[in-house]
Amino acid sequence: MNKRPASAFPTWAILVAIAGVFVLPILIAALWYMNVNQWGVGRTTNYGHLITPPIQLHIEPLPLIVGHGHLMSRYFRGRWTLVYIGGSKCTPDCRAALYATRQIRLALGEDIRHVQRLYVVTGEPQKLGFLEDEDPDLTIVRAEGAKGKRFIHQFFKAADAHLGGRIYLVDPQGHLMMSYPAAVNPHGLMRDLKRLLTVSEIS
């Protein structure tokens, strides 16, 4: 019986190489942002507020307001996420922010599948039913009780964060990387997002 030739590389090395194909692009993007100031790329190229170092977010099983169930533990994995945190009632500023993030996502064309949107309501939801018809791709959760406070607190660790009224950008590994004012410039956020999609080689 002929023996199969031994592989030139051990099995563990092959597995590491395969894993690297999927993980390395995200690590490169995170490393780029963590060292952005050292590399001479700062606020002159980023529209949003850069959060350094990025904050690893931990998912809490927050209840969905539209639909059934709760936020899954791997919700942030595999996609860039635009997160809006607002109060119990979606004010005109809230509507404008959600509309801006929706239009930005739609404008991505084929890359739309790499971006999702999350609206976190910090109080008792009031009259949000209109979003089910106007914004069907928007995930809406309620940050209630101790779990809600823990989840929200992670976002407020950012240097410029304050209670509500912010848009946040989370990477596909669940790192909070950037934040924007509610009255966001869509072109600026779009530019940041496209650059990240390119750097991470997701697009």
Rank of each mutant, 00 (worst) to 15 (best):
V41E: 14
V41G: 10
G42W: 08
G42C: 10
H49S: 15
H49Y: 15
T52I: 11
P53V: 12
P54F: 05
P54G: 14
Q56S: 06
Q56V: 04
Q56M: 07
L57G: 07
P61L: 05
I65P: 09
V66K: 15
G67E: 11
G67L: 11
H68C: 05
G69S: 12
H70S: 13
L71W: 13
M72C: 09
R74N: 15
Y75G: 06
Y75V: 06
F76S: 02
R77I: 04
R77P: 00
G78D: 02
G78I: 02
R79T: 00
R79V: 01
W80Y: 07
L82H: 09
Y84A: 05
I85E: 10
I85M: 15
I85T: 09
G87F: 02
G87W: 00
G87P: 00
S88F: 00
S88C: 00
P92V: 01
D93I: 01
D93S: 06
R95S: 04
A96K: 02
A96F: 02
Y99E: 02
Y99K: 07
Y99I: 01
R102P: 00
R105E: 04
R105Q: 08
R105V: 01
L106E: 07
L108R: 00
L108E: 03
E110F: 07
D111L: 00
D111K: 06
I112S: 07
H114A: 03
L118N: 13
V120R: 14
V120C: 13
V121N: 13
E124F: 00
P125H: 05
K127R: 15
F130T: 08
L131T: 11
L131K: 12
L131M: 15
L131P: 14
E132N: 10
D133N: 11
E134D: 12
